[in-house]
Design a protein around this nucleic acid. Structure first.
Lengths: 199, 199
DNA sequence: GAGACAATTCATCATCTGTTGAATTCTACC
DNA sequence: GGTAGAATTCAACAGATGATGAATTGTCTC
């Protein structure tokens, strides 16, 4: 149907359609599994157009994962929260942002499993956006290790729920998950450790 | 060097060498990334030999992941353990078995991220080997959901540590990790929930 | 309305994928 | 010691992959 040459009408739309198609395809199939042709088909576009816009596959991946949270957002989460509610607040914020249909987090997790540079992206994202600001706020000596445990727990829940499809988690609402996980996060962030936690 | 035809000497070794090469290659590259040719090279063998032995790639993957724990092993972990030590015992057992250089768990996690049948394998493994027996033993109404949270946490730590390479976790010893995570697992398994946990 | 340039597709490339069939070399049994 | 069969490699396959260059069609500016 669509012939060669430029389409009539506003053409700035196509680029964002490609991005959207790439996002959901990366999220569903991971880096290697998300074929340029699959993305192109999902976007209703020829393969070559993707290369034309984004150069190569890796640059497309990077463009897609211009990540959803920035450190100051995380800092805002703590604004005026009394200590008792920190766990819930963090849990709700992260689950809300990361488990959303947006699913950039799932996409990154899938890709990170088999692609070293995606793993580095996610690792640095966790570092810069979670560990750095949260550890600075709770201000305890082993703060970074504590936040790393919190992040691990969140990653694990996303993995089990959205990648593996563990029933006990898929059937729970975000509210129920926050209710279950919040206290754990709260303890990791506030409770004294039993001994030296990590190096 | 190696010419066509059967090699002299004991030939039952080769098969296990292929399995070992497949194990580590799957663990490093995931299902799609672990090329038959890559596995063959690692095993010092021609590609066709793999197909000859294992039929196809999926059967090879299944043969490799004849999984390391069985439910009765898990049950034994609780034998004569007083309630206070359950968390540590579970944490040490699972981290010890799953994070070992054996790395079948990492291999499954990597593959599960991009391959639906690998995800199903891991999900069922968690179900049958962790959730079923542990939930039966703690014997509380929402036991399955509690164990699912425990499993999620463990998966998350493995993911963050062995796949992402988060420094705060890679620099910790197994003992330190057990020390940090044990109490959390203990609470998930024994502490009363704040409200209804999940469906 | 002509010319520059952007958007889009088509055709094609070399490379890699899993799998299969035939050929060769060894071992085991009679 | 000859022969059945297993172990192993070689060669080749059809299909998919990411990338590139040329061709076509639209939009915008003067």
């Amino acid at each position: 149907m669509t012939r060669t040459g430029r389409r009539p009408g506003d053409s700035s739309i196509t680029r964002s359609e490609v991005l959207e198609a790439a996002r959901s395809t990366f999220a569903e199939f991971g880096y290697e599994g998300a074929t340029l042709r699959r993305i192109a088909t999902a976007a209703g576009v020829d393969v070559a157009l993707i290369s034309h816009y984004f150069g190569n596959k890796e640059d497309l991946f990077i463009a897609v994962h211009d990540l959803p949270i920035n450190p100051s957002d995380v800092a805002d989460v703590f604004d005026g929260v009394d200590d008792d509610a920190i766990g819930d607040r963090v849990a709700r914020f992260l689950l809300g942002v990361l488990a959303a249909d947006n699913s950039a987090a799932i996409s990154l997790m899938r890709a990170a499993s088999t692609n070293a540079s995606a793993a580095a992206m996610l690792r640095e994202f966790i570092d810069r956006t979670l560990i750095d600001p949260i550890a600075a706020m709770i201000d305890v000596p082993d703060g970074r290790e504590r936040v790393a445990l919190v992040a691990s727990h969140l990653l694990g829940v996303l993995f089990a729920r959205d990648i593996l499809g563990v029933r006990e988690l898929t059937s729970a609402s975000i509210d129920e998950l926050v209710d279950a996980i919040g206290p754990t996060i709260h303890r990791y962030l506030t409770e004294p450790t039993r001994s030296t936690t990590a190096a």
